[in-house]
């Protein structure tokens, strides 16, 4: 068993924090709180620096100052953005509504036809399958149609789930549960591989124990 310890101090810092986080599984302790504070602080510092250089300067200031003749209209959203910041001043909070109104209004208008296309039309088209009298047709087309219809009935809010209506809704919830179970099982392996990734980091990059 040969070790080939890494000479990079950063790797050991990462190992320290990795183990601090895993200590949370045992119980909450100052090491975990330390790691939590560091990640919040460092993440926020990173975001702030990137925000300043890439966003504020890169996507606002530089385009505005280098090509003012065609980009002058960027002043308007800048003013709206400044109005957004007035949220912090109690007397002027109402100014921020303009920015929110613009964003929400435009965002909703943007989404409306797309939601109909993707969430309604496309889903309906994909479910309009022919009913075939074969095993394949039953297992696939028929089951999908029944599942979608009964699922929709389950989500009805205006009628109580009683009688024949309740039975169909019951079929719907069965479909939903099977679907959820499938999603759950599908992601299990992916989640486990995350853990394997961290273990490899410690064993291979820090300790040099493995050569893969």
């Amino acid at each position: 068993m040969t070790f080939n310890l890494s000479s990079n101090i950063w790797v050991w810092i990462a190992v320290f924090f990795t183990l601090s986080v895993y200590s949370f599984l045992w119980k909450d302790n100052p090491l975990f709180k330390f790691a939590e504070s560091v990640t919040v602080g460092v993440g926020m510092g990173y975001a702030m620096v990137q925000w300043f250089t890439l966003s504020l300067v890169g996507r606002f200031w530089t385009p505005l100052t280098t090509d003012f003749s065609s980009r002058f209209h960027l002043i308007i959203p800048a003013i709206m953005g400044l109005m957004l910041i007035t949220r912090l001043i109690p007397r002027f909070t109402w100014l921020s509504r303009y920015a929110l109104a613009f964003t929400m209004g435009a965002g909703s208008g943007f989404a409306l036809p797309r939601v109909i296309q993707a969430g309604v039309l496309q889903q309906l088209y994909a479910t309009m399958l022919p009913i075939e009298f074969s095993l394949h047709g039953f297992l696939y087309n028929f089951i999908i149609i029944v599942g979608v219809l009964s699922g929709l009935i389950y989500f009805f809010f205006s009628k109580e789930h009683k009688g024949w209506f309740g039975s169909i809704a019951n079929v719907g919830i069965w479909f939903l549960m099977v679907g959820f179970g499938a999603t759950f099982g599908y992601t299990v392996m992916a989640r486990l591989s995350l853990f394997i990734g961290r273990v490899l980091f410690v064993l291979r990059d820090a300790l040099g124990f493995l050569k893969i």
Partner: peptide, 10 residues
């Protein structure tokens, strides 16, 4: 925080 797992940890 604005980072997904920093938020989760906190």
């Amino acid at each position: 925080a604005a980072a997904q797992f920093a938020y989760a940890a906190a």
